[in-house]
């Protein structure tokens, strides 16, 4: 099967500098393959190996997603090749636009059977892009996929849903978003990193892709730093755990929290 893994090269907002007026500066936050996306790489690799298939990494975003570090980080995780759309016009793009560019790239790649994605991205964390991507492609999109295996030309997909585990027979093409704990991804070793340098990378120009124009756009009118951030942080030392415990209980009683 021809499998595309959509992954995001993104910073952790934990490392962002947030100004008092709520403006977010991410320049000091280092980007990486988004935390849960290696789960999708691993599911894809196993499915490809079982079907003598191919795994193509796909990421879209600002020009900064295409560095040699970023390429290697993705290619060392079981991919056969990589396709990127890296254009500063996509900096801060909303989920529908990102999904639209991904869909256009999937169409450009051609004959794709399965698109696999992660649960949610480390910076935006909405779990929306894969399902909007399915909408753009007109394919079925299924979230919370905990297992996927080949059954001839079809798939057996397990989903971990609030009501229980659901098992489905699925024919391709399909978009599948994995749960965070579907599989434990293999850690890239030195050999994988060296091999990554030799794998093909194709950069698609945004201008060459058929991306629909936005119908609704978001205009930010005001920003603010969320309230409730500052807490007093009174710390007790636990050299004597019993003493620390009774100090804490006393402090909580005084604060009216018990």
């Amino acid at each position: 099967m021809k499998i595309v893994v959509a992954y995001k090269w993104a910073p952790n907002p934990q490392d962002a500098d947030v100004r008092p007026d709520g403006i977010v500066d991410l320049s000091r936050a280092k980007s990486a393959v988004s935390e849960y996306d290696p789960v999708a790489f691993e599911l894809a690799r196993r499915l490809a190996d079982a079907t003598s298939g191919e795994v193509i990494g796909l990421s879209v975003g600002a020009a900064s997603i295409d560095t040699s570090l970023a390429r290697k980080a993705a290619l060392s995780r079981g991919l056969d090749r990589l396709v990127l759309v890296a254009d500063d016009e996509l900096d801060g793009a909303d989920s529908t636009r990102l999904a639209g560019v991904l869909a256009a790239a999937v169409t450009a790649i051609g004959d794709v059977d399965v698109v696999l994605a992660g649960d949610s991205s480390i910076d935006v964390a909405e779990g929306q892009v894969p399902l909007t991507l399915a909408g753009h492609l007109g394919w079925l999109g299924l979230g919370r996929v905990s297992a996927v295996t080949a059954d001839g030309a079809a798939l057996v997909v397990e989903r971990d849903l609030p009501g229980g585990v659901s098992v489905l027979a699925v024919t391709t093409p399909v978009v599948l978003a994995a749960t965070a704990d579907a599989v434990v991804p293999k850690v890239a070793g030195m050999k994988d990193i060296l091999a990554a340098a030799k794998k093909p990378v194709e950069v698609l120009a945004l201008a060459d892709l058929a991306v629909p124009t936005a119908g609704t756009t978001l205009t930010t009118l005001a920003t603010a730093r969320p309230a409730g951030g500052v807490r007093q942080a009174v710390l007790f030392d636990a050299t004597d755990p019993a003493a620390a415990a009774s100090q804490l209980v006393g402090a909580l009683r005084q604060a009216g929290a018990l």
Partner: peptide, 23 residues
């Protein structure tokens, strides 16, 4: 914001070219 809810919204968003606004 459930998995199925996001699938319905995703199809709507793609059709209308409108971002799904969350949070």
């Amino acid at each position: 914001t459930t998995p199925a809810g996001r699938a319905l919204l995703g199809a709507v968003a793609a059709r209308l070219q409108s971002p799904v606004v969350s949070g």
